[in-house]
Nucleic acid binder design. Structure first.
Length: 280
RNA sequence: AGCUUGACGAGUUCUCCU
């Protein structure tokens, strides 16, 4: 049974939905009944393949065979609808879950909060933060990072800062992700000065900026027409041993191309191929 | 030394600026 579950999960991850369902059918034919894990894998599998509707019908099937979906099954489904942008349906599932006496945990709340922040409903996400705290579920760094990102994307710097403060009050330390979200927000607001300030702060605080952070800055310099600075960062990080990824190369190449510096752009293209990166 | 069948795992590029 465990073997089947693992393989079904693997097929879903590879996008082979039909094959996964085939395998589920054949296990039933062999007299092996899918268990609660199998069903959660199916639900999550459909969701990850953007087929949350079908995932929901699996939930019905579970009840049909007398298995009670647990918080994992419900959370997977909620996350699926959230990722498809159907927040209404996600909330209906959440209500159903609560009505059946299943409590939301940290992961469930994070899925909802992250989804809301992504679609710009950060205020509603903040309400859920309140709800989870009231329910005795402790938010973690990831919870606050989602909220900070949401506020910063909505140009609500004050609220974003407020979240950062609240996070620290709970003894939660910002991570590279948190700083990345903040730097990205500042860059998009055109405030490179403060973005660099945050960068300094994070280094001073013992966090190591990664390619993602530097790509954010490179892109921002490129957009601001400061191509030389962008190239400098690129060279500096390569020297530090940080390997530029496709995103990073693309950002720089875009800058060079718009400045009609095609020779250099071509050189970077060759360099990325040499590094076994696949230009997209 | 081994994150050991299932859920959030978060931040960065482009698609001619909608």
């Amino acid at each position: 049974l465990v073997t089947y579950n693992v393989i079904i999960g693997g097929l879903f991850k590879a996008g082979l939905v039909d094959e996964a369902l085939e395998l589920k059918k054949s296990m039933t034919e062999k007299g092996l009944d899918p268990d609660r894990f199998t069903y959660s894998i199916l639900i999550d599998g459909f969701c990850k393949n953007k087929r949350s509707r079908e995932a929901k019908s699996i939930l019905g099937e579970m009840y049909g065979v007398g298995l009670n979906p647990d918080h994992v099954a419900y959370t997977a489904l909620i996350d699926g609808f959230m990722k498809e942008g159907d927040t209404e349906e996600a909330f209906r599932i959440k209500d159903e879950m609560v009505a059946r006496g299943i409590k939301l945990n940290l992961i469930s709340y994070n899925a909802i909060i992250h989804g809301l922040c992504k679609v710009g409903q950060t205020e509603k996400a903040k309400d859920l933060l309140g709800e989870m705290i009231a329910a005795g579920v402790r938010p973690n760094t990831q919870t606050y990072t989602s909220l900070i990102e949401g506020y910063i994307r909505g140009n609500n710097t004050n609220e974003a800062y407020e979240m950062l403060v609240e996070m620290k009050e709970r003894n939660l330390e910002p991570t590279v992700y948190t700083c990345g979200a903040i730097i990205n927000g500042l860059c998009r607001a055109g405030d490179l000065e403060r973005a660099n300030f945050v960068l300094e702060k994070m280094i001073a605080g013992g966090l190591k900026p990664n390619v993602v952070i530097y790509t954010t800055l490179i892109r921002s310099y490129v957009q601001g027409g400061k191509l030389e600075e962008a190239i400098d960062i690129f060279k500096a990080i390569t020297k530090k041993g940080i390997l530029p990824d496709v995103f990073c190369y693309n950002s720089l190449i875009i800058g060079l191309c718009s400045a009609k510096r095609m020779e250099e752009a071509r050189a970077y293209l060759l360099e990325m191929v040499e590094r076994r990166l696949k230009p997209d």
